[in-house]
Design a binder for these strands. Sequence first.
DNA 1: GTACTTTTATAAAAATTTTAACAAGTACTC
DNA 2: GAGTACTTGTTAAAATTTTTATAAAAGTAC
Lengths: 403, 403
Amino acid sequence: MENKPKNIKGTQLKNMIIKRLYFDKALSCAELSTLFDKSIPSITKSVNELISEGFVVESGYAPSSGGRRPLLYSIKSDAMYILAVAMDQISTRIQLLDLSNQAVADSLTFDLRLKNNTEALETLIENINNYIAQSNIPKSKIAGIGMGMPGFVNVRQGINYSYLHTIGESLTEYISKKIGLPVYIDNDSSLIALAEQKFGIAKAQQNVMVINLGWGIGLGMIVNGEIFRGHNGFAGELSHIPILDDDTLCSCGKRGCLETVASMLVVAEKAIEGIQDGRSTSLKNTDNNPSKILGDAILEAAGNGDPFAIELLSDAGFKIGKALAILIHIMNPETIVLSGRGARAGKILMAPIQQALHQYCIPRLAESTQMLVSSLGFDAELIGTAALMMENFDKNAKGALNA
Amino acid sequence: MENKPKNIKGTQLKNMIIKRLYFDKALSCAELSTLFDKSIPSITKSVNELISEGFVVESGYAPSSGGRRPLLYSIKSDAMYILAVAMDQISTRIQLLDLSNQAVADSLTFDLRLKNNTEALETLIENINNYIAQSNIPKSKIAGIGMGMPGFVNVRQGINYSYLHTIGESLTEYISKKIGLPVYIDNDSSLIALAEQKFGIAKAQQNVMVINLGWGIGLGMIVNGEIFRGHNGFAGELSHIPILDDDTLCSCGKRGCLETVASMLVVAEKAIEGIQDGRSTSLKNTDNNPSKILGDAILEAAGNGDPFAIELLSDAGFKIGKALAILIHIMNPETIVLSGRGARAGKILMAPIQQALHQYCIPRLAESTQMLVSSLGFDAELIGTAALMMENFDKNAKGALNA
DNA sequence: GTACTTTTATAAAAATTTTAACAAGTACTC
DNA sequence: GAGTACTTGTTAAAATTTTTATAAAAGTAC
């Protein structure tokens, strides 16, 4: 264990290269040179060091653009690993990913209710520690833990104001101590947006709005190529903008919120009413807990052409579309992506959303924004947490493995 | 005239220092060092060169923070000048400013209708050239021209899609050739926002929404400390978001737009109706051209306590407040500023706006954003254009004077 | 097929930047 | 009130980076 505190800039550059190669697959020295505004010799030196350290490998030649073909370099997928933790209100999923975002161990899903659960944090830590122990990956090869969770998350301070409270130190510090790895947290919708912008359907785009169709309606915002969180981290509260003349009371205490008509929970409740009213549908109200089972059932029924299920989703979609019209006017995004666990309803929602955009959007603006459905789907949050971890890789030298 | 193409990095740093001192008044070498992530000797060298070149002066000592007092450096106000051009639909204002944003020549205001006016561009250029000639400032001491204008402006390409069309080259290139100075353009509302964030009531804040109360309702957005324009430059179209159940047709072709109830033009029209209906008011409909005269008259009458005028503004204010509630949910800004020529109605508008925020905003979000009225007022756009010019000062070496 | 242009890669030279050491000024503590 | 700790500013040496030059590789034009 040599201790070389010198050459901080050099390792800084090397970490930046690792980060970049994680996101960009394969790059040449010339591309890295222009990207970081460093001379080619500097880049060459760092890349060669990274190769001898086992982080980077040559990956063939790129086609020539009229001159000598550039030699490409890629990250070595198994150079290190990332522990991705994706939480929602009800359950939590853990998975070890390599630097190609490929799973290197089976995922672990376990029930973890965040609301009014003082033991949630300890359960989480225990599960993570067990998961790491059971995997065949030594802890020293894990670069860190990325976690996505609902609620109001202060990313810089590493605190979740809504859940998993700690005293005396931040949530990330606490978990980091108990597990012995660096920890980064962010809001689930923001991470889904990050996943779509880094590895999904909106890759490399600078201004992207990602709708997280879950039990509620989340919004993750990519602004100028980065996750946007607003002044206090409250940005993207799309589900509570006033959008209806309706007087239905929302859980937030206001009336007319989007959430009162367009969330999966509300759709499920309406489905139960319809079933009780004898509507013709393949849906059945079998469970006492309406939302959980019925949500998936509605998506499936709609996919199979059930008219009642389609009607329910269309109503919700039109209201979402009205909200998106507002979002387009304010943000003028390049792309809006429908993502999250409800993304498989995307195709069905698309028609009423487009209809609403026609009605509520200035044509020139509607044309400037493309509507897309995620291809990442359920994996978006996991990949987003990994991306979060790597986003911070060049921030602190701790993030890098002690090579 | 020495021609030294070498040491590009050095002049780059010097331009960055000039820019920073323009925005920040007075800084020490230590502050500049941490700001630019350069060593103190590097900064000292550049600053000393700038002093001998006449751009920077020493400006006393700052109070000690527990050690030796730092020597402060400021920009020399008369080292160079900026030509600020502020346009609206009807008239254009020109003024030469020094590096303290102080006028160094009387302003020139002249009628210049942008709509359907093929001669507008030539008139503009002629007026600018005459203005420079009549001033006592040699052209070589003018660093460049900053222009704010209504319409959809593509800042990077230097084009206004709405007005002042050119063929074969960009608007900025054309004007630049005809006048012989670098030219930068941007949307008027964006520049007002920039002025508020650099020199106004929202100084140094990272996330600021600035409402440009003019004949319409503009929105200038500061996101992560920079002007935000969206994917195609259409961001901030607040005046056409669907907000009303009302079926009044808007000029944009849609129904329910904010602009149909809250713009100064609509308020003026409603005033005329009221006068004709015999409403008790000090307002008089004396002119055939309703908007221009009446707008100012309403602001003044409301200021003097005229109940009818106050009622008109309150109605508009409440609707604006509803739109701001939506804006707060999406952007979570630190501050919203009421600015532009209608800013003097700010105090009157504030009450109904706050009322709407109470009704439509999640309390925690409403509390996170402060509502302020501009102190820059009518000068905001002029100062914003100067700031635009200096924002670009370090971008290209051309911007810097050939010292 | 040869010459020319374009692009990448490497090595030595030049330039710049940072580090380190020291001097000077100020506030806080005892 | 003296000592200590902390901050700024200057100079010279050390380290790093970039520039320049050169070679190699690949496409394009004649």
